[in-house]
Amino acid sequence: MAISLDLITGVLSFLFTLMILSYLIGDNPVFRLAVYMFIGITSGYIASIIWWQVLAPRLLMPLLPALLSGSIVEKVIAITPLLGAVFILMKLSPRLSKIASIAMAFLVGAGAAVIIAGALIGTIIPQISATINFFDPQLAAQRNINVIEVLGNGAIILVGVVTSLGYFHFSARQQANGTVRRFFLIEIIAFIGKIFIGTTLGVIFAGVYATALTAFIERISSLINFFGNF
């Protein structure tokens, strides 16, 4: 049974890999068929995962004991998400979609609070502190970094952070001739920021290429292994 499943898996993997690789020639029905099947299967798979890993354990399973033997508070706690789930599903109906906005408001409000706190606590303050602390000689000594390196790399990082933020500063004033330009200092900062942003995006681009290349290699290897195994 296991062998057969592995065989099926290998065959399917081989076929679908070839079907997708056919896109190298150009868009073709085989490629489309593979993509549509992939989307359908993935969606169905995700739906089943949501059912078994979200609705069943978090919504339905707590509901029955709460309704049978729970207190009013427990019942409310158990029923409330069910009510919200019904509201969310009403979004599928254009006639009832307005009711879904209640549950959506709940989601948006909670999400807004979470991202506020997360951005403030998890990124802004730590990253600003890290940028400043990079010049701390004690910390540098703990990391076995000499002062020159600290000052040099710290300056680069500082300039990179400031100029990158300046690059995203889009406020501008209107000139006498009607043209809109940013402040001169901001223009200089933004120009330098372009260098850092470009460099960062170049690194990310290389990383994406490395990831894609790894996936490509893995797929080619799987094809070779498929032929090697059979």
Binding site: G122, P126, S129, A130, I204, G207, V208, T211
Partner: peptide, 17 residues
């Protein structure tokens, strides 16, 4: 991490997070 996400994770390592 994947290679593609590392550049944006690197600052968190530098910050000690």
């Amino acid at each position: 991490s994947s290679a593609q996400s590392t550049p944006l994770i690197q600052p968190y390592y530098a910050s000690g997070q």
